[in-house]
Design a binder for these strands. Structure first.
Lengths: 234, 234
DNA sequence: TGTATGCATCTTGCATACAATAAAGTTGCG
DNA sequence: CGCAACTTTATTGTATGCAAGATGCATACA
């Protein structure tokens, strides 16, 4: 693992996209980025191609690279697909995980818990991303991993939105999520695929509810009496 | 759609890999291929990156590109995953297909039937590939499509093996597959997702059985009497 | 005032030349 | 004769320069 500028650029772009530091739909300028990362345009373009393959960006002819957008259609398919893939991967992970992978997962979970303690929303989202990415690796199924990683990109980007504010209710949900991670590690270690699947679905439900509440928050208070008076007045 | 040499190269490499004209595991030489396709190494490398993103090839640092291998692990996960993804995609395709997509699908099926008539195994496999790729597009689910397309790559490459010989039993199976395609088109047109899923699973079973029979053929005849005589002789 | 066309500028795409890295072969020494 | 270190060679990775395409603006005409 040597920090060649090209790989550093690749990793940093991934991170920035996941952190929505670069917003979905943003055009990526070759010249500017190549100067910023100190690489020439040639390797940068290869990085773009690779990011495109992973679903981080979209390429179009003579139009350069653009961060993958998240429109209504994307969101719809996201909610449609996530439970299926997540639970399938969870089952396989419990069956196939190696102890080395389990150790890595534990490390990541420690980092995640630390971020929760520090109330660092961005860090939490990224560690959470890595946590689930690792579970994907445990499953050892290249076909599902392709799906999973794309789901995780959008999941993390959506998560950035509501990891930030950290109201009291939110931080409670985050602690709950962290506990679920611990339980998952236990289930994976024991190879209890059934438990793992159930935990994963619970985890999904928790996350989904928070996303839904963000999209459709409680309506602002309406002064009902005033409204009815108005109606009578007319 | 203009035939720029770069895209031509991309498509041709895809075709050759699917046709196992370039065998799994083969190393791809940049210099040789760039000369062959009349493009410089720079765009060719971008093609490699793209093919890697699609799962056709694997890249490794300072080691160039290699056609995606198909070892035992790959096969195992392939059989494990295919029915799940195929049926999920089938359901969505029936719900979301546009008439334009349906027209394309009909065209491809005509080509497929023609290839069956001409007994052209390679062409059959490629048209079949495109048929199922289109169903993936109909589903309109980028996450599942990522999985599906990777499955299809390996499915087509496996298929090349047994599409070739075309014994009497084989050609019967192929005709059966073609009929299933027709039925699928009808189900998609009617939006009958349940029927579509069932057809897809039948289609999978047919394909799987042929693959299994190829991997584990009927054993050679054993002269049992001779063997038992030998045993007595010892 | 609205629209169309031509020009200028900027961005992307490609090829060639050069640098770095890995593989293979050779030579020297034990 | 065998092993090891060094040199050579082949192949990959990177940079720069140029060409082609796209975008935006200005000007002219309806």
């Amino acid at each position: 693992m040597k920090p060649t500028p090209k790989l550093q650029c690749l990793h940093d772009l991934r991170r920035r996209i996941l952190a929505t530091e670069i917003a979905p739909g943003t055009d990526l300028d070759e010249t500017a980025l190549s100067e910023a990362y100190g690489v020439s345009r040639t390797p940068l373009r290869e990085v773009f191609q690779r990011l495109a393959g992973e679903g981080f960006v979209e390429l179009s002819e003579n139009r350069g690279a653009k961060v993958a957008s998240m429109d209504l259609g994307t969101l719809r398919t996201f909610f449609q697909t996530a439970p299926l893939i997540y639970s399938s991967v969870a089952r396989l992970a419990a069956e196939n995980r190696t102890t080395a992978q389990l150790d890595s997962l534990k490390d990541v979970q420690i980092s995640f818990a630390a971020a929760v303690g520090a109330n660092d929303g961005g860090e939490m989202a990224l560690r959470n991303h890595r946590f689930h990415e690792l579970i994907g690796e445990m499953a050892g199924n290249a076909y599902l991993t392709a799906s999973l990683n794309r789901l995780l990109i959008d999941h993390t980007r959506l998560g950035q939105v509501f990891y930030r504010p950290a109201s009291v209710a939110e931080s409670l949900a985050v602690r709950r999520a962290s506990e679920q991670h611990d339980a998952m590690i236990a289930a994976l270690e024991a190879g209890e695929s059934g438990v793992m699947v159930e935990l994963t679905l619970d985890h999904w439900t928790l996350s989904r509810d928070r996303m839904e509440r963000f999209v459709r928050p409680d309506p602002l208070p309406i002064d009902v009496i005033q409204l009815s008076e108005k109606r009578n007045a007319v």
